[in-house]
Design a protein around this nucleic acid. Structure first.
Lengths: 257, 257
DNA sequence: GGTCGACATCTTGCATGCAAGAAAATTTGA
DNA sequence: TCAAATTTTCTTGCATGCAAGATGTCGACC
């Protein structure tokens, strides 16, 4: 209702679809489609409020409606799409309240992961975590934002994996979808750069010391700080986008080209 | 491989399918099917390892393969089914390690919910929680196990809702599926009956006092105690079911007929 | 007699067809 | 000229059809 974008850009946006993995012979159409659409939504190519016309998607993806429909159902479950009965699924809004809610949950999830991981982490795994941390630094030094995001995510993801708790990983993956979306939406370098490095170091230290409590605490404050910074960015961006309620929505700045 | 049940009982089991909600006119076939199958799996009617033949399901549900396939995809995402490519989906095993992993996660999730809920709970909500608690006592006094399960779940669910955190509720719903499955599998009255009552009372007290820390703590220990008891039950049951490795699997007790 | 291979059947994966409901366009009335 | 109603078009929901992969069986060969 509030955000009513013209429905036409869908075709143009979908043109940016990554190729369907040349190697894949047949099958996998479902998972493939889910991955592609998921990417488009998480990265913000498909903006919140965009209506997903099944047939249009079929044309763009060059597949039939069956796998498309299944993929849409999957993404609805992920919370990336919203479905009204007998209506097109729409890309869900990136609700700020929801991101705030995310903070709480991701904080306890990663905190728990830290506690668990610290209890039985191997020297090898510790080295691996350290490597991931430095990979992040590398991408930062090179001003490679996507690579930076990826490395940062890998750092956190590995810790979740090292918790040895499959449920925790499952939940984290689901949450990470929304976190990533928020990150891409802000499209900003974390402002807390120095702090983040130090916090990562503290996490590493705690893991190295096998100090469960400290690892959990370090992760909790790191995640909370980071996500709260993210929310602040989003809030600022949103405030800037809608300075007042005036209807003249002449707002340039679309990053395209 | 290990558990190879004859594939025939599927038909018989599916015969127990609850009717498709008479009132529902059309549409909703997808959600309806998901709900029905989910119930069958969670309650254990469809045992772990059961292969779900799409066509057989279609016959039993009297619908076509399209909604069935979509429902299966959904349940795979829920973790209730496992899918090998080009093979029938099978009801996922109720892995004990996974239940143990669940404990950790549900504990922090409900603990967080308690903390958040205590911060802004209304008198009305407190009364509601109290009512749910007593409804549970009622069902226990009447020896109504399903009602007891339901009331207990409602008690916990309401607290999650009262946290005001939509993400938390979303995650909890996903986790609850697996918890319920474990509960139904054990099919036992909680052994810690007295203790559980007292713990509920403590939760209520903490909420009433708006003591965030205490509410979180009370919920954490309550959940952890309860679920650990559940795991103990499951372990005992599993041990009883497989006394030794002898191949003569003359083990009665199949509840069929 | 045992093992390997070809054939038949079954099952999933995807495409397409059809009907009911929603959106849009055109027409009709004031 | 504007508004309301009807018709047309479009879109989703479900059913069905077809082909590729998998499984199980039977036969031939060693």
């Amino acid at each position: 209702m509030t955000i009513s974008d013209d429905t036409t850009p869908l075709a143009a946006l979908l043109a940016q679809l990554p190729p369907p993995e040349p190697g894949k012979r047949k099958g996998h159409l479902h998972g493939n489609t889910v991955a592609r659409l998921r990417n488009l939504i998480v990265t913000g190519v498909l903006a919140p409020g965009t209506k997903l016309n099944e047939r249009e998607l079929c044309d763009q993806l060059a597949i039939s409606r069956t796998p498309v429909r299944e993929a849409i159902k999957t993404l609805i479950q992920d919370g990336l799409l919203r479905a009204l009965p007998n209506h097109s699924a729409v890309v869900s809004e990136l609700d700020l309240d929801e991101v705030v809610a995310l903070i709480e949950v991701v904080t306890v999830v990663e905190g728990l992961a830290g506690e668990l991981a610290a209890k039985h982490i191997s020297d090898e795994a510790i080295a691996e975590i350290g490597m991931l941390h430095y990979r992040m630094l590398l991408h930062h030094a090179r001003d490679e934002l996507p690579g930076y995001f990826e490395a940062n995510k890998a750092f956190h993801r590995r810790i979740i994996e090292l918790s040895g708790n499959s449920i925790l990983l499952w939940v984290w993956e689901l949450l990470a979808l929304r976190v990533d979306r928020a990150r891409f939406s802000s499209n900003l370098w974390p402002t807390r750069w120095r702090t983040a490095i130090e916090e990562h170091q503290q996490i590493l230290d705690a893991l190295t010391a096998r100090d469960s409590g400290r690892a959990g605490q370090a992760l909790r404050s790191h995640v909370r700080n980071g996500l709260e910074g993210l929310v602040a960015s989003l809030r600022a961006k949103q405030a800037a986008a809608q300075p007042e309620t005036e209807r003249g929505k002449k707002q340039g700045g679309a990053t395209s080209r």
